[in-house]
């Protein structure tokens, strides 16, 4: 059987309009279920949350007077400014690569999208490890600052010991919680992309 002839027959007989087809009159109003679009949406959500938390900490900075509380909140604000910027760059790169997927090679675009998202997640997971102890300390200090005897409290070795224990226990908890959240938001789509990249890369 000649392949080209069979293909012509196939096109005429089998590759016709699907039965359930409905015309799309306004594509701009359609909602996407595409994995890369989902990754983009997850990145948008991360970005929005970064901005919200940043604003919350800025407000808190002005609400608390003790310089030590301001110092810890300031560190958190610095971290959020960095992560917001980093997430924006990731989002912008992801968007660019997705546009390129329709102009250049699929494999390269998928590899780039996978790499951008994967690196961003891993980097943020690790970088945040240094921030969690400061977040715990900031929260703890904010709690102490509610009391009138803040200055004497922070000199109390028992209170500092509790702070140390809280930082040591809460850091891994926050780390694994963040890891779990990343897994829910990104992992499924990243795996899907990776399996396709692997298939394209499969050696002969």
């Amino acid at each position: 059987m000649d392949l080209n002839e069979a293909w012509k027959k196939l096109e005429a007989e089998r590759l016709e309009k699907p039965a359930a087809w409905k015309a799309v009159d306004h594509p701009e109003k359609c909602r996407s279920r595409h994995p890369v679009i989902r990754l983009k949406k997850s990145q948008e959500t991360t970005l929005v949350f970064s901005v919200i938390f940043l604003l919350v900490f800025v407000v808190l900075f002005f609400l608390f007077d003790p310089w030590l509380v301001k110092l810890f909140i300031g560190i958190i604000i610095g971290a959020y400014v960095f992560f917001t910027w980093y997430n924006y760059i990731t989002y912008r790169n992801l968007k660019r690569q997705w546009q390129k997927a329709f102009e250049g090679s699929l494999k390269t675009a998928l590899q780039n999208i996978h790499s951008i998202v994967y690196k961003s997640i891993r980097f943020q997971e690790k970088a945040a490890l240094f921030i969690y102890p400061f977040s715990v300390a900031a929260g703890y200090m904010m709690g102490l600052a509610q009391h009138d005897n803040f200055e004497s409290d922070i000199r109390d070795s028992r209170i500092l010991l509790v702070l140390l224990i809280a930082a040591v226990t809460m850091t891994p908890v926050c780390y694994y919680l963040a890891k779990w959240m990343y897994k829910i938001s990104y992992d499924k789509y990243l795996k899907q992309l990776q399996s396709l990249i692997d298939e394209i890369d499969k050696p002969e």
Binding site: P18, A20, W21, V24, P27, E28, C30, S32
Partner: peptide
């Protein structure tokens, strides 16, 4: 799957747009 056919038709349209 018929539902996938329609979804995909829309999706391609959307991406193309």
């Amino acid at each position: 799957h018929p539902e996938d056919e329609q979804d995909l038709f829309q999706e391609i349209h959307l991406q193309a747009w």
